[in-house]
Nucleic acid binder design. Sequence first.
DNA 1: TTGAAAGCGCTAACAT
DNA 2: ATGTTAGCGCTTTCAA
Lengths: 373, 373
Amino acid sequence: MGVGLRHEPAEAVLTRGLSGDEVGGTLCDTASVPPAPRPTLEDVAARAGVGRGTASRALSGSTGVRESTRTTVLAAARDLGYRPNAAARSLVTRRTGMVTLALWEPIDRMFADPFLAATVRGLGRVLRQHDHRLVLLPLEADDDPTDALDYLRDGHTDGVVVVSSHGPHDLGTALAGRDVPVVRIGRALHDDGLPWVDVDNLTGGRLAAEHLLDRGCRSPAHVTGALETHAGWVRRQGYRVALAAAAENVAPREVEGDFSWESGRAGALVIMSSWPDTDGIFAASDAAATGVLAALADLGVSVPGRVRVVGFDDSPLSWASSPRLSTIHQPIAELGERAGRRLLEVLGIAGVTTSGSDAAQLLPVRLVERAST
Amino acid sequence: MGVGLRHEPAEAVLTRGLSGDEVGGTLCDTASVPPAPRPTLEDVAARAGVGRGTASRALSGSTGVRESTRTTVLAAARDLGYRPNAAARSLVTRRTGMVTLALWEPIDRMFADPFLAATVRGLGRVLRQHDHRLVLLPLEADDDPTDALDYLRDGHTDGVVVVSSHGPHDLGTALAGRDVPVVRIGRALHDDGLPWVDVDNLTGGRLAAEHLLDRGCRSPAHVTGALETHAGWVRRQGYRVALAAAAENVAPREVEGDFSWESGRAGALVIMSSWPDTDGIFAASDAAATGVLAALADLGVSVPGRVRVVGFDDSPLSWASSPRLSTIHQPIAELGERAGRRLLEVLGIAGVTTSGSDAAQLLPVRLVERAST
DNA sequence: TTGAAAGCGCTAACAT
DNA sequence: ATGTTAGCGCTTTCAA
């Protein structure tokens, strides 16, 4: 603000030359055009010379309307520039055609999340196919979610997709049984009965560990993700499963992390000092794996020469790091699609069904081999 | 999909151990709880022993209700878990309390945009202060915007904020005069009368160029932004203004770019081969400036030794580059706030006014000096 | 200060 | 196949 005071808008002069006409956008175009009230269905019906009911049926593509009548009505609607009033319609249908993706995390992180874009794309595509629309509801993570919950419950939206949050707060739980259908992307640590879709983190963890073993690692270690998240917990399970199945039954070496770069770095330092003969590290996220790489570089440990490293996510980090990271790829866009489909199914949208089995909700992951292993 | 077929959900076994109870989220909790219809205002009124009108007044904090009555009604509402039906309310009030930030660009870019987070934060904060809520409407850039326009016009939202898009498509123009108030962040190249807020790009361009001159550059050059955008055009204007005002009246050296990294790189190559004595480069964005740095590094030209480089945006790129980039900082969050305030003003929200002058809508920028100059 | 009643614009059930 | 009518749940006159 202090800066603003001393600010001199030199631009005022020059832009006039650019824009030609008035600059700045008129606040009110008053006195130019009378408000021109939006035409209602009534108007359309009148112009088409039919009753309101017929007009409604014609416009909504409902059956039982003579073709010629429909044409007339459609023409009238077009001529008038008619658009149905969303509130009136949804008051009676109890539907809005909207689905909300609730984003409850720090806004900066939200827009730095490489998965969000893919999620939005997949989700949006499916919804569009079924004449629904996606909107995003950004919530500051530390905000009181009360009024956001109200928004979600008050009939603005037909359904909600929540991205399973890490931590104590959970929008999904808060919304469960609260007037509005919810589908979760990623599971809650403790199942609360909400429908969900998820990637197969267990197999992912197993694949990562097996890959290390295949590469000849005899003493692999794991920097876990946040263990209060389902993903973190289960990825570790997968790691354990693989080691337990290994011929020589190697003992798991584990350090608890939280998916962050810093936890990866710290974890690697702990691992290499506790178990100096460690020859492979599986980090529960690419961010953490990148931290592991940094730590190993600092220690002068060669990768993959002396220690092999595998991450999880196949995020942009994994190919920007050096050496480029072997990692577990997740089909995020498809996850979004599945979430959308599942929600539409819950909403009872015609033609949308998904197998109800767990397996169908669990999307496959795959190992991507790069230079770090 | 092919992968999915051969996918084996090993997890089914183990998660059962984790979650304890049933896994996967029940699709329907049928037969457990009868639908439990949401209480309406009628119900609240009945429980409070008053008429519907009184209940409405009490709940909406309207004056002319005996205090005891209000208390009773509020209690009844709380007991019933009453929430007003959004559709019914907005049908009569013609207001929704919602503002939409329309995002019409490739979704991947959208979520990589370092400014979007700040915009959302600033905008959301202001709206919240005035009991409005922000939702984001993501549109695939290549999508047909028709149905998105319909959404925006059909009464779902009280107002729209558009981030001035680069290119021929422009949501703002498409929405102008179309039933719904619009405020633009960043101006259109040719003023179309829509209200807008913007940063002072002219001064920004001037500051960047003056900074180069101050540093002793005698032969500065400019890689412009996309000249079909207002920002690109005006930043160049600022550059020209500074050079024209310089004592020795240096001739502007300009290469047209488009804000991208690649255009910065290509532009620098052209500049250094066309005018080898160039000793300063102003790039119209940090991304482009980073490209300039890359090109100069390839050419073995030292920065800032032989050529000084200044960018624009103060994005994360500017401090991640090497050398760290001198650049023009923009108050993005405040820009979002201003946009929100301006929109609320247009909506006639009590207590919100902004000076209508251009100057007030033009936010100051400032030079941030780092290592590249 | 409060109750009763009139819609907001639409869909759906009921007549015709 | 089409016109008429009854609401959806709320706010807002208009009386009382």
